[in-house]
Structure formats: structure tokens, C-alpha cells
Design a protein around this nucleic acid. Sequence first.
RNA 1: GGCGCGGUACCCAAGUGGUAAGGGAGAGGUCUGCAAAACCUUUAUGCGUCGGUUCGAUUCCGACCCGCGCCUCCA
Length: 494
Amino acid sequence: MSLRVYNTMSAQVEEFQTLHDKEVRMYACGPTVYDYGHIGNFRTFIAVDMLQRFLRQSGYRVHYVMNITDVDDRIIRNAARDGVSVQQYTAKYEKAFLEDAAMIGIEQPHLVRATENISEMADFVAKLQAKGVAYRTDDGSYYFRIAKFPAYGKLSKKDFSGMIDGARVDVDEYDKDSARDFALWKAPKPGEASWQTSIGPGRPGWHLECSVMSMKELGDSFDLHAGGEDLIFPHHENEIAQSESLTGKTFARFWFHVRFLLVEGEKMSKRLGNFYTLRDLVLKGHKPSSVRYLLTSVPYRNQLNFTFDGLKQAAVSVERLRNFRQRLSEQSFSPGCNPEMQTLARETITHMREALEDDLNTAQAEAAILKMVRQANSALDAGSVKKEDIAPLLAALEKFDEIFAVLADDDRPKMKAVFDWAMSEGREKDISPELREIVQSGQSSDADIEEKIAEMEAARRARNFKLSDSLRAELIAAGIMIENTKDGVRWRRK
RNA sequence: GGCGCGGUACCCAAGUGGUAAGGGAGAGGUCUGCAAAACCUUUAUGCGUCGGUUCGAUUCCGACCCGCGCCUCCA
């Protein structure tokens, strides 16, 4: 079997095929760095990250390019508001984006920046103009003439046939031939950032950026282009029009779009007060791994309802997986092997692969690993897991984590970094008691904790339960979780 | 108005023309000095409503109701 993935262009699930054998060239529209990233942004980027991870796990060499849009209207406006240069402004938020992406387990793609490719963009516009599909207006802006690209609308399934006959539409604000024609290049306005280029001064339009950078990095035709569902129209439609007008070739073969999420059942918006950046959630004391798990738990084409209850559930599931792995790694086992465990591990890997090959059905992949955990835990309780079973079970967990990336117990340092950031930004008041507790649990050293546990155990063996309970309560208050097992006390930081 | 998606137990959420994955929460139990962790049992004759096709539909078709998305900046 092999990967089947939904292609927005054909509007159906297709067998994934690449232009070059075992090599994937893919591009995702990245963030416009004008603010901190919100969980909706990260749902999209995590979905593409998982796709990319799964392709690599499936044996492809992956060339994954993401752009950073570091010039646009909002950036110019906000930079002016803050009295800083566009570069200073975007540098801050690009850094924040990369930190956040790393925090939530996104592997960094090859990044390209709009402002580093301005001259290529100008050249691209010049070529479009030479082909007669772009025109310059009196103010020095350039527009794409949609009437010259009959396939316009093929991605978003929109019918523009009624409006492509060059009928002049009167639009006060613009000096373009048709209301639907879109800007390739914007002439400078006083006080705005602009570049001197072969086609005159100005700055690139957003759609142009992605066409130019994706083709520069990946070629005229490449395998897959990804983004949020909102980008289907007009952004991706416009990219296709620009690129295919120029080359006459198919621009991207597969179009991968991630559905928007809901927050507590409603569209996320600042107005509704349900708008959360990743950092907001960490400040509330939620772990990055919980957020990632929740965002991966619903297949990318389904609407995901992001709730705080769901976030707690996600945390429990992650804990369950981590506890299981710890149990396998720490316990001692008798020699030999249990064929049932061998089969279980093997079948779990197969089920996960089949689920992901089915248009990235992450919910089913998670169900498969959790089922394995339950059955293996049951066998562990019964003492029927043998030494040689450990490696296959851990290998299945590893396969899972190559895609889902939630098992590494590294939430605390990441949360500490957000804590420090909040302090340095003067947002101490936004730090929740929960976050404080987690950060504090990182303060005490392993040796201190183990000393205290030894004390607690001594009291317990002496049947001084009052003392041992109070010592345990102290540890729990400091964010340390205690478990008594057959092999002694196991502890971990919250 | 145009195009599209969805309505599955208390909650989140997969899935299938042949009789409902997984997780959380709840209840009972095993283990434990007590916890924690883990495990076991239990919780939808039912999958928005009404019709139709079929030996059989939650799954296909039609109508309707409700929610959501895109059509303008938006991941």
C-alpha cells in the first residue's frame, strides 16, 4: 500500500505520486510575521509537519520549503505604529514563530523570506508583462489580467466565465482593468517600505512571493503545495495563474489544505475572546505536548474543536504513553519472548501505517498505539512480557513518535522559556499558578528529590505513615509525582 | 445567492452496505497501609429528522432541520 491523500485540485483522494522517484518537493505558505502565532496557525503547520514526517518515514527524501512573509500591509502598519523599522518588527516575530514552532515539535523546513527575493519577483513580473498577462497602471503598480488565464478558478471551483470578457468595472480605489485582477506589485506610498527594481520602485504582492520563491527553490513544477483552507482562494488560485501563465506547466501536482479549527465550538476570534496564541496556553500552564497532541488528534481535513477539556484529555493521553515507555525501560524482565507481544507490536506498526496512508488518519493511528499500550500494560501486570519483547514494543512507540512527536519529556524547559519571556516582556501578571508550579518543579535537583524519597521510604518501612504521607505531600506540592511499583519508587516531575 | 464540509454515547472523536475504533469523564472491582500508576468490568438495539433503494442502512439516494467554512485580510 502507499499514501493516498486528498487533492483539492481534483477534489478527491488520490494515490500520492511524485515527479521524481522517492523524492518529494513540497512548499507550504508560512506565516506573515506580524504577531505571535495562534493555535489555528499551528494546526496547519503541525499537519504539514506530520505529512512531511510521514513521507520521510515512508522512505522519501523530502525537500520542504516554507516562506516567511516579512513584508505586507499589516507589517507596515504595525511597524509604523510601534515606531520601528519593518526589519526590526519582523525580526522579533520571526524569531518568536521559530521558537514556537520548535516548542510544539515542528521540524524546521527550509525557510525563504520575501524580502530576500525582491529582484527575482520584479523579474517575474517583467516576464508576465512581456507575455501580455500583466499590465502596469499609471501609479506604477502591476496587475495580473485574469481574462488571460482561462483556467482561473480551477482550484477553488469558481466560475469566472461571466466576468472575463474585459468588461471594464468601475472601482474607485483601483486603476485596474477588471475588478478581479489582482496586484502583482504595489507602487510605493509615502513613508512605506519599498525597493528599487527593474520594473520600478515598490513592493511585491503576497501571491507573487509564493510563486517566485516556490519555483526558485523547487522548480517550475513540484509535488505538493500546502496551506490553510482559507488560502485556496484567492491566494493559491492566484499563484497558479501567475506560475502557469509563465511556464505553461502544471505548477503544483497536489494541493493540501488544512481545515480551520473551532475553539470551544466557535470560530476563533479576538472579538469572542477565544483567541489563543501558543504562548497564551503555556502561560495558562498547558504543556506544549498537550497542545500538539490535541492538534494532531483530529484528521487534518475535519473541523477540530479545540477545548480546554480536550487539552486536559490530551495531557492524560500523553502521560499514558510516557508512563508506558518508562515502564518498559525501567522494569526488569525475565529472558525469552512472548509471541503475542511480538505480534502486537508488529500489528500496531502496520495499523498505524495503514491509518496514516489513508489520507493521514491520525485519529486511527493514535487509537492503534493506545490499544497496544493497554494490551501491553495488561500483559505487564500479568508478568507475561519477556526481555525480548521490549525492543519491538519500544520500536512501535518510536514509529508513532517519529510522526506525533509527543514522547520526549521536555515540556518543562520549554515552559520555563515562556516563563522567562513573560517576565522579560513585563507580563508577569499573565503567568498562571499552574505554570509557576511546573517551572518550580524544575528547580529542585534530582539528588534532593531522591534524598527526600529515601526519607519517605524509610518512614514507610517503619510504618510511620503519617511522616511518609507528609513527605509525599511535600513532594507533590513541589510538582513531583510519586508512584510505588514492585521495583521501588518511581518519580517524575509534573 | 454560489461552492463546500459536518451532525455518532455525558464530553472529544474514528468508522463501515451486514450490525458501532480510541480517549476522557462517571460507576463498580483488582492492586495498595493510603494514594499514585496500571489493569478488569460497565456506560449508543443507537449514529440530526422524515421518506426511499436493499434480504439488510448509521453507512447509498432524496427532502428537510441544525452547525460550520470559503466567496474580502485570515492558518
